[in-house]
Design a protein around this nucleic acid. Structure first.
Lengths: 259, 259
DNA sequence: TGATTGAACTCCTCTAGACGACTAGCTAAC
DNA sequence: GTTAGCTAGTCGTCTAGAGGAGTTCAATCA
């Protein structure tokens, strides 16, 4: 049986934090293993001699930290560590990006996972002010919007939305669901825009409710966002792509060039 | 005056979520601007006709999402957008990394911010099992541990801890606070280990309580972690560095090599 | 056998109140 | 003029209860 210890009411640290600390320590030290169920609220209330809300505050803290997940009617469970997903060298990533795949997914494939795409949606819309600025279009100029969700092992891991100027997409199957071999980058090059440079802006934040739903994650699990812009040899932006992925780690590799 | 609307008690969505939705919408639409104070708990209790805990739950949700920050005794305020911090091309980053600086900080300098370092601590310790494995050392072999905290504009933005095998550091000032020009990478090369490759593993997660304290951030603000390993030309790992930074965004740039 | 019911367990949401601690601004005393 | 103390307003924490809803499983009924 798990030794929960006791809380110290004369301690400055409030009881709910002390309880969270105790549980966190058990998780950190593996005495509560991934997938294992935490003691129930009732048990903790009895054990520590506190009110229900106090125990719930403690557990909420652990949930916010992403250490545990609560399941209504079942219990609170230690979250299993997210699989480390490796993004190989940027050379590798670049090659696959040219094939129109997210580097994350390219790597998922390379590492033997079974990826997939669902919920592809392609529309033709007037560019929002933000997208227009990023693509250096006039306001409300039309863009092809391609949204899709990527799966790995059947679980959603990433959503992505690309915006391509209609002027570039015209005469190509970019506005079709199936864009043919080489993906949209292939079609962009077919249209005479040779790709020269990508920038990717990476950051992390908490998911919005919509993102939580799309990625099937709980609150408290951060997401990483990638905002990619692709430029052709003339420096003209030809695609912007917003990606939101579950904050699994990825690896970048750099070689130091010979001196 | 802000139009808060009302909640619908017959709605399936619980009141605290409805209240959070209403406030979130006001923030999203700029009717509650960054830095602006939210209506006080008492005001919201009166307005929506709910109990205190219900209002607090709603605000807790927004805090978890990083949209607002609460200040004890003052109020709850809309969080201002974090400054975008750009990490330039990997070539740029690489050059600066060779100077022993974090790429993040190198870029902060380049972008005109005034960076700084405080809380440098250098110790000589027995390697933990994990560090020993990453540096391919025998268990408990000794390593130099260099911890420091980086500031930008006087605010902490990043903490970093480097581990260098004592065998490599011996005879160099790596164990001193001041390592001389070129930083630790310079000294590592002085010791005959020419640098050839870096890997960086990037991920995002919620901060631990210690990290929250060191970076002076509240709960609910995710951090990005970088785990770097530097290898010499023989493929021997010569340094590992764990970095935790506030989840500001950074930019990667890739050039597509000529075909 | 198969479907239904019920009980026991779990977490979810909410109420109504209490006290504490921090902040800021005012006021009275020094 | 400065300082100490007061006060109103704010959020932080806790108590003790209530009913609701999802899950599981065993007992019951058709």
């Amino acid at each position: 049986m798990l030794d929960l210890g006791t809380i110290d009411r004369s301690n400055d640290r409030p009881p709910y934090r002390q309880i969270a600390d105790i549980l966190r320590a058990h998780i950190d030290h593996g005495r509560l293993a991934p997938g294992e169920q935490l003691p129930s609220e009732a048990t903790l209330i009895d054990h520590f001699g506190v009110a229900r809300m106090t125990v719930r505050e403690a557990i909420k803290e652990l949930r916010t930290e992403g250490l545990v997940v609560a399941q209504h009617g079942k219990g609170v469970f230690v979250r299993s560590a997210p699989p480390v997903r490796r993004l190989a060298s940027d050379r590798f990533a670049r090659r696959h990006r040219k094939e129109g795949k997210s580097a994350f997914i390219a790597e998922a494939e390379a590492s033997g996972h079974v990826p997939g795409v669902d919920q592809i949606r392609v529309t033709n819309e007037a560019a929002s002010p933000e997208v227009a600025e990023r693509l250096r279009l006039k306001p409300r100029e039309r863009v092809i919007v391609r949204s899709r969700r990527y799966l790995a092992d059947g679980r959603p891991v990433e959503t992505a939305t690309s915006y391509i100027p209609e002027a570039i997409a015209k005469g190509t199957p970019i506005a079709e669901v199936n864009t043919g071999p080489g993906g949209i980058y292939g079609r962009i090059e077919d249209a005479g825009h040779e790709l020269a440079r990508f920038t990717e802006e990476v950051s992390a934040r908490m998911p919005t409710p919509d993102e939580r739903k799309a990625l099937e994650i709980g609150a408290g699990i951060p997401v990483m966002t990638l905002v990619r812009t692709a430029y052709d040899t003339n420096g003209v932006p030809v695609e912007v792509c917003d990606t939101v992925k579950i904050a699994h780690s990825f690896v970048l590799e750099y070689d130091v060039p010979a001196q």
